[in-house]
Design a binder for these strands. Sequence first.
DNA 1: TTGTATGCGTTATCAG
DNA 2: CTGATAACGCATACAA
Lengths: 358, 358
Amino acid sequence: MARKAPPRRPLRKHKRNGEAGTPRAARLEEVARMAGVSPITVSRALRNPGIVAEETRGRIARAVKKIGYVRNFNAGALASRKTTTIGIIVPTIMDIGFSEAIHGFYDTLGEQEYQLLLGVSDYSEEEEERLVRDFLAHRAAGVILTGVSHGPEVRRLLTGMAVPTVEFWGLTQNPIDLCIGFSNFDAAYAMTRHLVRLGYKKIAFVSPLIGSAMRDNDRTRDRREGHRKALRDSSLSIDENLFASGRLDFQSGAAALLELVEKRPDVDAIFFGNDVMAAGALMECQKRGWQVPKKVAIAGFGDSDLSTIVQPALTTVRIQRHAMGKRAAELLLERIAGNTQVPKIVDLGFDVIQREST
Amino acid sequence: MARKAPPRRPLRKHKRNGEAGTPRAARLEEVARMAGVSPITVSRALRNPGIVAEETRGRIARAVKKIGYVRNFNAGALASRKTTTIGIIVPTIMDIGFSEAIHGFYDTLGEQEYQLLLGVSDYSEEEEERLVRDFLAHRAAGVILTGVSHGPEVRRLLTGMAVPTVEFWGLTQNPIDLCIGFSNFDAAYAMTRHLVRLGYKKIAFVSPLIGSAMRDNDRTRDRREGHRKALRDSSLSIDENLFASGRLDFQSGAAALLELVEKRPDVDAIFFGNDVMAAGALMECQKRGWQVPKKVAIAGFGDSDLSTIVQPALTTVRIQRHAMGKRAAELLLERIAGNTQVPKIVDLGFDVIQREST
DNA sequence: TTGTATGCGTTATCAG
DNA sequence: CTGATAACGCATACAA
């Protein structure tokens, strides 16, 4: 029983890269050796050329080129606990509004040597949370979220890890960190009031449903509520037959138009929660020879390119899509840079654009 | 002179995290301590739960939750020399075609726990090269590029680091690694031949110009050349007055139409290199009361949603936008997984869709 | 302006 | 199924 433990052989120090199997990417050290300097000097030359002597820098540059050295952000991030990665989540990229916002980010980020991690949530809070987790696992320097309502974990994660965050496309008094956008409620309210002023009495509202789950979301809900409030404030009755919804595409816009006209033949205006649906309805009117806005007025939301192209040109709500992205990125970068003077809530507003369809 | 060197004080081992200043993200080790296991076990439980005893796994899960641990991909990537990051470069996201392709990637990547680094090159080869470099610095597991012509460095970098790569939206016999798409040349050729068969003789072509540099690119060039070849093969003369170009938007489509009609009043068909421009031209015709296709036939490229909505519905070339993205991601993932049976060149083809505008 | 020593948080490898 | 140890490639802190 009382057997002695076997004498402990010294553990063989294992080299992970023993065999010359897979070719490895070049390391800083190899560049350093070739340039006759230390690795840290190469590192400096690459990140902050100004602080390295010109002559040294030249030798390093040559070595880098010759060896084909490519930086390793992962190692760098680990050592410095910093990254130049920004994570952004949009519900979809099939909506030109979000595409344009992303375009806006790019105008700011591109020049600043930041990389963009893109997440598409498909309007799902669960998916959004998963994506936020991934961004944090990447130790993203900042995160941009669409809208102002998220799962509870999202806020906890982001504040817990103290990651600069911008919520855009909506407004709230209690942002996770910063927020920039416009009030969906106010915008819809304004449009409906505008329609009332034009003399319309039976004003319908169409909610776009989105994502594979075909749900609405906080933005859509806010718009619908803004519309309802405007009706109440105008002493117009709220008739549930004047509400419809449908998938966010041309066809469903046309379908919603027909549905409403059938339910309430006397409907005199339809406010679509999205330009695309409004354009679809406009096309349907054209096909059927219905005069717009004579038979029925049509308004959209978003002021996409479409709205000036269709006939008649579409009355719509203009929002600052590109600016929203651009400014969001600017705010985020300032925040990351440690600027404490960054405004926490930025309202970019909206405009009701009266054209020919109302 | 002969002063002795001062006795070497032992260097103070510096702790980087001496002060309790910035709160640090929790580490694997802390979770391990709380769960009463070693860090490596936690690591395993997180990455591959199956190989850890259920009971152990439970304790670990609880500790993770309590501590609020979030994985650190940077450290993981460094240690394993692997990432779950895919880099993709598109020329723009303002074109619905690319948006839809990205959407396609997502349908594949999302479920596979990969993250997406997005690069927008704005149709610039220099920018594309910079982005590829960034992706490599992130040690992306794979890269997806738009089109098949790139700066020379791009190929060198990608092959040099042996990064699985898919080029999409075009076809070439000599891909960097894999490629999937359709022949822009053949597609345009087919459309023009189609127009010839319909009896048109004066068939114009409009090249969309893109990016802030307003250039064309290999895809556009291929389409134009396909068109020219079709004319030659049909024994139709090539008249430079039947070529125009303009920014890729509605307005420029309308402008190109007017320009062509002015230069060649007898133009009987116009093939636009992009649906958006074609739709713009269609709108212009409608405004002016020009019958389409009676006065002039109009064809587009891309089969976007627009094409079925405009009146008359637009004849166009359908390409597999969503499938291109989805399949590209599938190919890439198989390649990353080490599957050597992946086809190197995948032709998704195209279809000429005859509607009412020709 | 450059170099030395050390740590970043994880995973591969090998042992049990 | 779990653990001990040594890398992974770079940047910070400090010294020279």
